[in-house]
Each structure stands twice: as C-alpha cells, then as structure tokens.
Design a protein around this nucleic acid. Structure first.
Lengths: 145, 145
DNA sequence: CTAATAGCTATAGCGGCTATAGGTTCAAGG
DNA sequence: CCTTGAACCTATAGCCGCTATAGCTATTAG
C-alpha cells in the first residue's frame, strides 16, 4: 500500500504525473521522502491528500480554497463555518456561471437555428456576431467565468 | 466618428485598452495608422471589428474561431457552412460545460445542505471532499471546461 | 505654457497545468 | 550479474486570454 512511485500514485489518484510534481512545487502536496536514487516515494497519506485535491478540483474549487480546506482538515475540532462559507461561495459561483452559460447557449441556439445555409453575407451566425442588437438575451451582462 | 484614440475606442467598444493592444499584437485586430507622435488612431471599421470580437468572446468563442469567422466575413459570397460548423461546435461545447457544471452544482448543494454547522471533523463539506464515494452524481466523468 | 491625463513599449505575471529536452534510476528478463 | 527499456529526475518554456507594472512621451484643457 505504501511506497508508491509517482507513476503508481498518478494511476491511483487520477492525477497526472507532471501535475503531482507541480502540486509539490507550489506547496499543495507534501513533499515525500526519496529513494536512494532520488525518486519520490509516496505513502497512503499522500494518496488521500491527492484525492482530496482532485475531488475539490472536479468541483471547481481553486487551489487556494483547497489549501484553506486542507488546513481545516488538520484542525478537526474547529467549527466548520469557514468550510461551509467556502463551499457556499463556490456554489454561488457555479450557479452564476451556469446562468451565464445558459444565456450564451440560448443565443447560440438562435444563431444556429436561423442560419439559412446560404452564403456568408446572409448568414445569421456572422450577422449576429457583427450586430449585438440582433441578440435577445443579455449574455454580456453577467460573467460566466 | 473616425480618428478615435485607443481610449475612445475602448469606451465605445467595451474592450479595455490593454486588451486592444494585445489583440493588435497577436494579429486579431488590424493595426491602425498613427498620429505624428506615434499614437494609434482608429476608424469606424476598427470599432466594428472590435465589437465583432467582443461579442464573439461573450459567446465563448476562442480567438482562433473568431479569426476564422472574421476571415469568412471578408468573403461574403462563400457558403456559410464553415461559420455554421464553428457555431455548432461552440454550442455543443457550451452545452457540455453546462451539464458538467450542473452536476457540480448538485453535488455542492448536497454538501452545503448537509453541513451540520458543527466542528470540522463532522463537517459534510470536508467529508465529501475526502471521500468521493459520498457523491451521488458523476461530476468527474465529463469535463466542464 | 503648464500640468494633468492619456498614450507608448517592453516585460512579467495570473491560474492550472502541459510539453519538451536532456539526463538518471529502477526493475524485470535473460 | 548484466542489460535494456520504461519510468523517473530537473529545468524551462508554453498554453489561453488577458492584466499589471515600470519608465517613458504625446496630447489636450485651462
């Protein structure tokens, strides 16, 4: 179970090898001990830590948020208000992005549906891009990133 | 109407000054003539071009796609299949991202709802991040970026 | 004419990786 | 035991689409 090479750790965690090294370089992942030849040797704790990060990334958390959440994990008797606040902020952000993307999707659908499949000069796709007034939604108003 | 400074162009187009210079540097926006002192002087055509780019960016198109669409605009008698294809690809991409974000949103909602507002050790937020098995959806399966 | 504002170039940084080059170590097969 | 080839190492640059900084010059309003 222990003494995983970086490749094995990558396979087990679902995080790519260069990404693991990157996480170590920015202090996201604890630096492991090394083999006599200088190669990294990971334990079960690293695997757990990396899975935590991966899962957080899948949920769209930034690395700084995940660092804060990791720090909280290390103090299990503290109130979880901060963790809750970070998660709520993330949820709000995701909801905002969804709303933005839905406006964009609707606009793109209109563009594509109205394309007459003729020549560029009459193409609704090009026309819509050229003239924002042809839009019905307000996709530009709220950011989706 | 013509002979806009870069600041005026920025105001009228909604694109920031450094971004305009960036677009010029990567060949997205035609380089304008200069004043005797070397400052950029834009015309109505530049404003139109920049609004096209801005609108496309709001719809999530990459700069390379927008370049392709711009090139099509310059050949108005060509069939608009390519424009249509680019827009459809973009629509599909946006739909994929929405689906991914919706899975993420649902998971975050579950996390936040179940937070008992106690201590970190019992916090559902931290627990869920630590153990993917607590998730019900498959947010990690399809990418949302 | 002066002073504030706006412009200029060049360069570096953001997030979160990913790719490349050029070298070293490890592990399995013979 | 030795060879081979995969996996590992470091360092550095690049991706996208900007944004920020520093140190300078041009324009414009009063």
């Amino acid at each position: 179970m222990t003494d995983l090479s970086i490749g094995k750790l990558a396979t087990r965690s679902g995080v790519k090898v260069p990404t693991i090294r990157y996480y170590e370089s920015i202090g996201m992942l604890e630096a492991p001990p090394r083999s006599p030849g200088g190669q990294r040797r990971y334990g079960a704790d690293h695997l757990e830590q990396l899975r935590f990060i991966r899962h957080g990334r899948e949920l769209g958390f930034g690395l700084d948020d995940l660092r804060a959440l990791q720090d909280l994990t290390a103090r299990p008797d503290r109130p979880c208000e901060e963790a809750d606040a970070i998660a709520r902020k993330q949820l709000a952000d995701v909801e905002r992005r969804i709303a933005g993307l839905e406006a964009v999707r609707d606009e793109l659908e209109r563009m594509v549906e109205r394309c007459s499949h003729g020549v560029v000069d009459e193409c609704r796709v090009i026309q819509t891009l050229s003239d924002h007034a042809l839009c019905e939604g307000d996709h530009g108003t709220s950011g989706e990133h």
